[in-house]
Amino acid sequence: MCNRDIAARRRQHGVTLVELLVGLVIGLLVVTAAITTMLLSRTTAAAVSDMTQLQQQGSFALRMFGTQARQAGSVELTGENDLGAVSFDSTFTGFNGTGVAVSGTEGIGGAPDTVSFSNQPSTALARDCLGNIAGARMDSTFSVVKGNLRCQGASGLPQPLVENVADFQVWYRVKTSPSSIRRMTAEEVDDAKLWNAVRSVEICLDLQGTETGDHGRSTHVDCDGKVVPRKGLPRVLFRNVFDLRTQGT
Rank of each mutant, 00 (worst) to 15 (best):
E106C: 08
T105G: 12
L62P: 04
A33K: 02
V102E: 06
I108D: 12
A69C: 09
T67K: 13
G73E: 07
G23S: 14
V48Q: 14
S87L: 05
L39W: 09
F65H: 05
V102I: 09
D50A: 04
L20M: 15
M64E: 06
A61V: 00
R63D: 15
G23K: 10
E80P: 00
T98F: 04
L54C: 08
Q55F: 03
G94F: 03
V25T: 14
A101W: 05
L20Y: 10
S41A: 07
L20E: 11
I35E: 08
D89H: 02
E19C: 05
T32S: 14
D82L: 13
Q68C: 08
V75H: 06
I26A: 15
Q53D: 12
D50K: 03
F60T: 12
R70C: 09
V31A: 14
S41G: 10
T91N: 03
V102T: 05
T37A: 15
E19L: 08
V48G: 00
M51V: 14
V22C: 10
M51R: 13
T36L: 15
A85H: 11
R70E: 15
T36S: 14
F65I: 10
D50S: 03
V86H: 06
T52R: 14
G99D: 03
L21K: 08
A46T: 02
I26Q: 05
T44N: 13
T91I: 05
E76Q: 15
Q55H: 08
S49G: 15
T36G: 13
V25C: 08
Q71G: 08
V31T: 13
Q71F: 03
T78C: 10
A34L: 14
T93C: 00
L77D: 08
T43I: 05
L20H: 10
G104P: 02
V31I: 14
V75W: 04
E19V: 08
N81R: 00
